[in-house]
């Protein structure tokens, strides 16, 4: 098998023969799959799902030392982690087009048919094209001049435009989008946090202590208390640390145990194609 997939220098004619043969084989496989009877599709999907998980599951359960020389870590499947990672990365990267096609397709339709707010869709398309082009140009021709120097001003290169688009555009806008939530938290705290029960009181008390323990204001408020001794416990930063380490941690661990068992069970069901629902029951 290693000889069969041995690399061939791209200057050799056999390389192109192998390439074309593999493309033909790939298309042939797809045609064969499409020609399969419909009733065989779900079992085939289940088989592929099982094979997908089999490598990692088998590598985990097969004892260390099987099929390898003495002193080597792992078993005969362990040396292929990097190859599986590369195949997963490459195949997964091909799916980038899914989101791109959907978004760009939708806005292309709006812009081309001059529907409501088509101007915004046009701007989206322009920014998409600009960012794509200048990110690629930055990588492969970053120093190439786009606008030569004029009247004492320095020239503008692909890299300069990329920096404006990334740092000034994408990064700033991304940060600002999430910064909006800061405002809404303030109005939510004011309008929605009503203490109506014992549990709500405990929740707010715990939140306030942890909040004050996280900021310099809390340290300043209880700064008069000694930093050692029994009274030191009542400094906000110490109370906050106590809540997080001794009260929050065991609760989080218990939740983690429950989640872990749930994730394990769901993973097993996914691997063995036992899941049911709208997606899994499709023909």
């Amino acid at each position: 098998m290693r000889t069969l997939f041995h690399s061939i220098p791209h200057t050799h004619p056999l390389y192109y023969v192998a390439l074309l043969a593999t493309v033909a084989a790939g298309i042939g496989i797809l045609a064969l799959l499409q020609a399969l009877p419909t009733r065989l599709r779900r079992p085939l999907i289940a088989l592929v799902t099982f094979l997908g998980g089999l490598y990692y599951a088998a590598e985990f359960f097969i004892p260390t030392g099987w099929g390898v020389h003495k002193g080597v870590d792992g078993n005969f499947l362990s040396p292929y982690f990097d190859k599986v990672a590369n195949i997963s990365s490459v195949l997964g990267s091909f799916s980038i087009g899914l989101g791109v096609f959907s978004l760009i397709g939708m806005h292309l339709r709006i812009a081309s048919r001059r529907r409501e707010s088509w101007g915004f869709s046009l701007m989206l398309l322009i920014s998409f094209v600009a960012m794509t082009i200048f990110t690629l140009l930055n990588e492969y021709a970053g120093k190439s001049v786009v606008i030569p120097s004029v009247a004492g001003h320095s020239s503008i290169t692909n890299h300069d435009i990329y920096v404006v688009l990334f740092n000034g555009g994408l990064a700033s806008l991304d940060s600002a989008m999430f910064a909006l939530i800061g405002f809404f938290i303030i109005s939510a705290s004011y309008r929605a946090f009503r203490i109506r029960s014992v549990e709500a009181t405990l929740l707010m008390a715990s939140a306030i202590i942890v909040m004050l323990g996280q900021v310099t204001l809390g340290s300043w408020l209880t700064g008069g208390l000694p930093s050692h001794g029994p009274l030191a416990f009542f400094r906000f930063e110490n109370m906050s640390e106590y809540i997080l380490v001794h009260l929050n941690a065991p609760a989080q661990r218990a939740v983690t145990f429950g989640l872990a068992l749930g994730v394990l069970a769901t993973s097993l069901r996914l691997w063995l194609s036992l899941e049911r629902g709208l997606y899994f029951d499709q023909e």
Binding site: S93, I96, G97, G99, V100, L103, I104, S117, F120, S121, M123, L124, L125, I126, S127, F128, V129, A130, M131, T132, T135, L136, E139, L165, F166, G169, L170, L173, D174, M177
Partner: peptide, 19 residues
């Protein structure tokens, strides 16, 4: 709304090119 659309375009383009 203008900058929201610009952000979406930039993010999509960057993701594609970086991939």
């Amino acid at each position: 709304r203008l900058f929201e659309h610009v952000f979406l375009g930039l993010a999509t383009g960057y993701g594609l090119a970086t991939t």
